[in-house]
Design a protein around this nucleic acid. Structure first.
Lengths: 224, 224
DNA sequence: TCCTACATTGACCACCCGGTCATTTGTGAA
DNA sequence: TTCACAAATGACCGGGTGGTCAATGTAGGA
């Protein structure tokens, strides 16, 4: 566990104050550029205390990341259970919209989460990255597998690869929604709900039916 | 310009030695964690000299990034001209394979390039990111537009959005090829040429024909 | 009131950073 | 050989870092 006994014994208000400052600092600066001095000032506690609560910068970061990841997973699992029984396409639509709304509600945590997925900052980043990527692909794989079982997905499709591609597409959309320079003028960045839904529609359209003109010669494409 | 007169007057061997050390350091540590002290030691020159050649850490980084970006663009443009006249699908296949081979030939530069696309390290990262994302999407848009003109792409498809999605897919593949923890056990990471081509095939298959079972009810999906 | 056990503090530490500049070294002309 | 000039050097600077610890509160039982 990352935080010490003494942190858990703190008044809840103080714990939250510290967490809030940590989330703020890490989301703004990433791991290695985050400054414990700033953090301490922001939280209104002394440096000595902070290092009593969390032995190390890494411990604190680990704690914050754990929280962020737990929250993301909660959101996604809720979508999974709430869309149970619907067609795959609807379920993935739900995932995308849930992703956008998560960014709206927790922009800083989203920032930390995506940074973790992509950057190589933080010494132990790899530990998280590997498992998060795998879990993300597995999660999507579950959706697709069920859809395939119901005949909504072409039997020749390799689900692992499809899930992998889908995960890339989703990341691209999420990133553009909360990072202006990824959007690069396409109109996703902080766009309205209806524009968002339009993007989601066309994305699903492309993912399920492709962009090709429907001369549907599906061939090859099976791995090995 | 980033480098000073005195750098351009150096013996070519020395210039290369310095560039090589800089590329090494930046690709390994990112911008802000890169250490000029390490760099200087690696290059076998004195600190004073380095700061004569490049006034600032940022200037040096800018110079390195310029080189990396120029090289990437050269590779991509070669593919564009060499595949002129072929079907879109073939051209995009060419792009993907060229991407993989670029990573093989210049792994460190590829690392710097992708870091630039994704991370928010480096104070002026945004300047690069915005233009790189835009250019990348525009580049793909060019391919798709030509394909649409030849009837290889469904007329209802919004090319901007398709190019955006495609760029996400390509990034995902590239990342998995050179970063083990993104691959997360799928088998792309440093895989053989034939496995690579199999991945490219299925990816193209999905992008052009979708994953859905071919009950082809293409509807809606047009923006606004 | 005193004592004890514990929570809190911030001055302090060693280290590393990007950047400077007086000094040393190298070089070609006279 | 001497000299003038440019190139190269590395000790040094102010500042910021993660982390420590003796000193200082502070609350509760005797």
């Amino acid at each position: 566990m990352a935080e010490t006994e003494s942190f858990r014994n703190l008044a809840e208000e103080k714990q939250e104050r510290i967490y809030r400052a940590a989330v703020q600092e890490f989301s703004a600066c990433g791991y290695s550029n985050a400054s414990m001095n700033n953090l301490v000032k922001e939280a209104g506690i002394s440096k000595g205390s902070l290092f009593k609560y969390f032995g190390t910068k890494l411990d604190l970061f680990d704690s914050v990341v754990n929280m962020a990841v737990r929250l993301v997973k909660t959101h996604l699992k809720r979508v999974r259970s709430e869309t149970n029984g619907l067609p795959v396409e609807e379920r993935i639509r739900g995932l995308l919209l849930a992703g956008f709304s998560f960014i709206d509600e927790h922009p800083q945590l989203a920032r930390i989460y995506f940074r973790l997925l992509q950057s190589v900052d933080s010494p132990f980043g790899v530990k998280w990255q590997t498992s998060l990527h795998r879990e993300s692909v597995d999660f999507l794989h579950g959706f697709l597998a069920e859809g395939k079982g119901r005949g909504e997905i072409h039997p020749d499709i390799n689900l692992q690869q499809a899930a992998f591609i889908l995960s890339g597409i989703m990341q691209q959309l999420m990133q553009a929604y909360y990072t202006e320079h990824v959007d690069s003028g396409l109109g996703l960045y902080r766009s309205s709900q209806e524009e968002l839904e339009s993007w989601v529609n066309t994305t699903l359209q492309m993912f399920f039916h492709g962009i090709g003109d429907s001369d549907d010669n599906r061939t090859g494409g099976e791995k090995k």
